[in-house]
Each structure stands twice: as structure tokens, then as C-alpha cells.
Amino acid sequence: MIPGIDMDLRHSRPWLRASAALLLLVLTALAVLPAEAQARAPITVFAAASLKESMDAAAARYQRDTGQAVRVSYAASSALARQIEQRAPADVFVSADLEWMDWLQARKRIDAASRRVLLGNTLVLVAPARSAAQPFELTRDTDLLPLLGARGRLSLALTASVPAGKYARAAFESLGQWPALQARVAESDSVRSALTLVARGEAPLGVVYASDAHAEPRVKVLATFPADSHPAIVYPVARVAASRHPQADAFVWWLDGEAASAIFRQHGFTIR
């Protein structure tokens, strides 16, 4: 043993122990920081376009009650589902129909255990508020062509993919009116885009949800489609499977509670 070296080692041990303790603290902090940052981050919700006003109000209420921020992205359910399928960074998905939620569940992109039925809605025929047309009962004998005029278009969401458009086509087919109307349809990428065409007077008629008509003062409801003329309008909600936000499940549960239900009722939805 060389005395000088032995003395240096003995004196260095406290420093080494302190350095190791400091390193452990740093590593622990680095492990905790991502979880804390994730908890502070907004919950990202992908929601059907028809939910705009109601979900904005629900998100604001949730943040006020819990301190947890919620960020909502709106589009057609079909577009949002495809984005989630491509692993877009979302925590919660609210669809305007069952089919797109089923589509994601089949691909294991949502947490099936968190899925629940949230809302219902009604399908209505709308016209610009200044239109001279008066409300009427919509039946198989109704002829909408005079209301469209010589060049007017029937404003619908995409009938092959967007829930509101699919419901509308199903209703017109059930009422035997689709063959006469199909050539007069103007399709838009979402129900809100279809609503906007009517609100601006660019289309004399359109088919939207009752909640959409409730949100837009520039349109008026001419008729409500019979409930049995189309599949039930159902809004399911679920946590996105890839989400790691610690509050995502809590928000899904809250949306199904009384505080959120009161908000949705105020905006023209029914509670399932």
C-alpha cells in the first residue's frame, strides 16, 4: 500500500458519495419531469364538427372546475377518425356516429373499456332565415323541388363518409325522395360547412342536426325528419388508445356526468 495514494482515496470517498447522491437526484427529476409535464398539458379532444359550441362550453367548465385545460379540434368524424388511425396526437375522440368509432376500435386505436354512448340528436331540414318557406311536415309525399327552384342546391355533408350526410341520404331514401334530389345535391366536407352554405343564402335548403340549427340564427327549421327514416343519431366517446395523458379517462367520465349533460341539453342535444 502506498500511503499517499491510500490517503487520497480515503479523502475522496465523501466527495464520491455526494456526487452519486446528486446524480441520483438528477436522474429521478428527469424521470418525473415528463410525467408532470404531461399532467400539465391540455387534454386534446378530437370532436365532431356539430359539437363546436357545446364542447367549447364543456371544456371551459371542466377547466374552471378542475384546473385542467382542454384543447378541442373539430372536423367531420370521418376525417378525425382517419387522423387518429394515423396516430395523430389525440387523447379523447367524440364521433357523430357509431361506425367511425367501430372502425377505430377494430384497429385498436381506442380504449374499448372507456367507450360509452354520450349524446343523441335530431335531423332537420333548414332554409335561410329570410326564406319565405314555412314549416311543414316531411313525408313521402313531400316535393322539395319547388323549394329548390330552377338552380338551387340541397346542401348536405358528404353522403358517403360524413355522419350527417349519411343520415340525410338514408332519410331521403327511406322517404322515396333520393332519386329526385340526388342530382341537386351540393356536398360539403362537414355538417358545419353544409350549414354555412344555407346560412349565407348560397343554398335554399340543407340538412343538418337540430343542434346545428340551434347554433346558427341565420337559418330556420322547416321540417324534422321522422326518427324512423334514418339510423339513430348517436355520439359515442372514448379515450384514444395511444393517449398517455393521466386525465384523459377522467374527462371521458366527466362528459358522461350531469354537469356536461346540462350543457349539451342547452345546445339542442339529447342525452342517451
Rank of each mutant, 00 (worst) to 15 (best):
T142F: 11
T270Q: 01
T44E: 09
S261Q: 10
D8M: 11
L145A: 03
Y209W: 15
W103G: 10
A262F: 06
E99H: 14
I5C: 08
F269H: 00
A260K: 03
E187T: 00
Y167K: 04
V208T: 04
K220N: 10
R87M: 12
S161Q: 14
P163V: 08
S211H: 00
H267G: 02
L9D: 07
A79N: 13
A199L: 03
D228A: 05
A39G: 05
V208F: 00
S211W: 07
R272N: 09
L158D: 15
P236R: 09
E258W: 05
A215P: 15
M7Q: 14
R17T: 12
L156N: 06
L195H: 05
T196K: 13
F136V: 03
E85R: 02
L125G: 06
D8P: 10
G206E: 07
A29F: 15
H11N: 14
T28L: 12
L138R: 02
E36L: 15
W253E: 15
R82K: 09
A259I: 12
A59N: 03
L98H: 14
V221S: 06
V208I: 05
G268T: 00
V234S: 13
I5L: 12
A171S: 00
R82T: 09
A160E: 11
K52W: 12
V45E: 03
S261L: 01
V72C: 05
V198F: 04
R87A: 15
A18Y: 15
D91K: 00
I271L: 01
A29C: 12
A248E: 11
V117A: 14
L118S: 05
A69T: 00
V207N: 09
L156Q: 02
W103F: 12
P135H: 09
A112V: 13
E216D: 06
